[in-house]
Amino acid sequence: MVRIKELLTKQQWLEAYPVMKQLRTHLDETSYVELIQQAVENEGYKLFALFEKDTIVAAVGFMPMITLYNGKFIWVCDLVTDDEHRSKGYGQQLLAYVENWSKDNGYNIVSLSSGLQRLDAHRFYEERLEYDKVSYVFLKRI
């Protein structure tokens, strides 16, 4: 049985860490929890997990945002499926969940970025989920 549930507590966030660590390899447990705490408190970040039985096998984190470019929209910050559970449609289920959450809460755009090296992910977003590639994201470390 597969179910999706919002993770609201530090303990629940920690349960998702082994899966999230596969995407955010630079984060240790402490910095991971601290960043989620700050994002929840300051940015409205939401973290949902997809469970297969009682095990987290995929996770998505997103933030409701408002910009002049998109207006009101949802920014998907994190989307990952455990390496051992890929190709089962879990990423697609999580993004469909985010899209439904967005509609239910008055947001009509879902946006995300994906690393340049993640060509399989790009095909997944564009071909299977019908996302449009509309820009590049630029970053400068200061």
Rank of each mutant, 00 (worst) to 15 (best):
A96C: 02
L94M: 01
V60I: 15
H85W: 08
C77T: 05
I36H: 14
W75R: 06
G61H: 05
M63D: 09
N108W: 00
Y131L: 03
G89C: 05
Y107R: 00
M1A: 10
Y107E: 01
A49F: 01
D132N: 12
V110R: 01
T30A: 15
E52Q: 13
I66L: 12
Y136E: 10
D78I: 01
I66E: 09
I56S: 10
K140P: 04
C77I: 01
E126A: 03
E99D: 03
K5I: 14
D82I: 02
W13Q: 08
F51Q: 08
Q22V: 11
V60H: 06
G89R: 04
D132G: 03
H122P: 01
F73I: 00
A96W: 01
L50A: 09
H122F: 03
W75L: 06
N42A: 14
D54V: 02
V40W: 10
T30D: 15
E34W: 09
Y69E: 14
H122N: 03
Y125N: 00
V33E: 14
W101M: 05
I109D: 00
G91R: 01
S113M: 10
Q11K: 14
V2F: 12
T81K: 02
K53T: 09
H85Q: 12
L139P: 00
I56R: 09
V137K: 08
Q117D: 03
K5R: 14
Q22W: 09
E41M: 14
Q11V: 13
F62D: 07
V33W: 13
W13C: 10
E52S: 12
S111Y: 05
T67E: 02
Y69V: 11
R86G: 05
E126K: 07
L95E: 01
V57I: 13
S111L: 04
F138I: 02
E127K: 12
K133L: 13
L68W: 11
F138E: 01
I36G: 11
L116N: 06
L139E: 13
R3F: 11
K140E: 04
L116I: 07
L112W: 03
V60Y: 10
W13T: 11
G91F: 03
L27M: 15
Q92Y: 06
V134A: 04
I74S: 04
E34I: 12
L116M: 08
I142K: 05
W13L: 10
D54W: 08
G89N: 04
L27W: 15
I66S: 05
L129A: 00
I56A: 11
C77Y: 06
Y17N: 12
E6W: 03
V57G: 11
V2D: 13
D78R: 00
A96T: 05
E6I: 11
Q22E: 15
N42R: 15
N105F: 06
T55K: 15
S111D: 04
L79C: 00
A121T: 02
G89V: 00
I142W: 11
E99T: 10
V40E: 14
Y45E: 12
Q92T: 08
Q93C: 04
K133M: 10
K21Q: 15
R86H: 06
F51S: 07
Q93R: 13
T9G: 13
E84W: 01
Q12E: 15
W101Q: 04
V60F: 11
L79E: 02
K10W: 08
Y131M: 02
I142H: 07
R141D: 07
H85V: 04
A16V: 07
Y32K: 10
L47K: 09
W13R: 03
M20C: 14
